[in-house]
Write a protein that binds this DNA or RNA. Structure first.
Lengths: 182, 182
DNA sequence: TGCCAATCTCTTGATGTCAAGATAACTATT
DNA sequence: AATAGTTATCTTGACATCAAGAGATTGGCA
């Protein structure tokens, strides 16, 4: 089931401990799910280090990336940001306020629908983001550099399959319904 | 590079947006790193739902799992828990205190070295954990059920390769040095 | 037209986490 | 012994996040 060719990692260590302590249990799903969770945490540390060089938090980069990705004029409503970033509306308010204080985004009320706010990236925000993004992508490339082309292709394919198992299709804007298990 | 056989997921959507907005940038690393991060968040929601059925937070399950995994007599020092769980000592203190209040663990000072504390799972804690773990593993199996055996094997192998790229070898007890790149 | 339900943003209070440092206990060297 | 450095745990203050709901605005339907 698991290849013997690769060096055992920390999750292999966990699995071995469980095999000793609870040999009656089948803990094999952890080989996938536990690894995804652990790898995400390890990756985050590496990504944060580069964001810090630009005096940015990962969540600040995230907000700005979402605005840039949206295309010109690089503005979205708080509600759209909620859904894109898998966070609650209170968190979005907080993030926008902080970024506004730093001069990276501005708030503007919609004229037609006065409930709506438009969050727009400022020139200063765009400049910081563009610089950070280049470094961020270099960092990501550096992290993946030890992987063979075959391993990268396998990762993309199998991770996409896992996305499918989780129902994360391409028109899922990012929203996640908590405690609503289909 | 990326297979065309699988249904596009949300990350494919992001990549397409970047291809439109910044065609000059090579954002292909996101196909792996972005997916791992997103999948971890999506998985966490699914795992939390089952923990909630046992009135447990994921971090409570984590602490108890670490103690059980350690083997009889199911006790570890706070420092060991820090390192196993990739959290800071302050967080560990808080977690132990909360679990102690719920009667799931006890603190005991070491007789020989009075700096040291032993955190031990209580019978009540062990009973709750054992029940939750069975449900948790069932949940993980259910999540992975849509995946073919081939996809699962690919996932394990390629994720382990990514562990290797991140230097997460089997004697990495869980400790992560922040901002100490190489 | 007037009102009710839906929509959108923001507020509040609680919680888990971290960084930095305080406190206590041990160890090695003199 | 005495002291300095090391180790282990806990404390403090700041902060990002969430759940729940408040406040404001809009749109549909009587």
């Amino acid at each position: 089931m698991t290849s013997e060719t690769d060096k055992p990692d920390a999750v292999d260590g966990y699995l071995a401990q469980w095999a000793t302590e609870r040999p009656d249990l089948d803990v094999s799903p952890m080989a996938i799910i536990g690894r995804v969770s652990r790898l995400a945490a390890l990756l985050q540390v590496r990504l944060d280090a580069v964001f810090a060089e630009y005096d940015l938090q990962a969540w600040e980069f995230d907000v700005m990336a979402t605005l840039v990705r949206a295309g010109s004029p690089h503005e979205l409503s708080p509600g759209s940001l909620d859904r894109s970033m898998m966070i609650t509306s209170g968190t979005t308010t907080h993030r926008i306020t902080k970024l506004e204080q730093r001069g990276f985004v501005t708030r503007r009320r919609d004229e037609d629908d006065k409930r709506v706010v438009h969050v727009m990236l400022t020139d200063a925000g765009r400049m910081v983001f563009d610089a950070a993004q280049v470094a961020h992508l270099e960092n990501e490339r550096r992290i993946l550099e030890p992987l063979s082309e075959q391993h990268r292709a396998m990762l993309v394919n199998s991770l996409r399959a896992l996305s499918g198992a989780l129902g994360d299709d391409s028109d899922a804007t990012g929203a996640v319904q908590k405690h609503k298990s289909a």
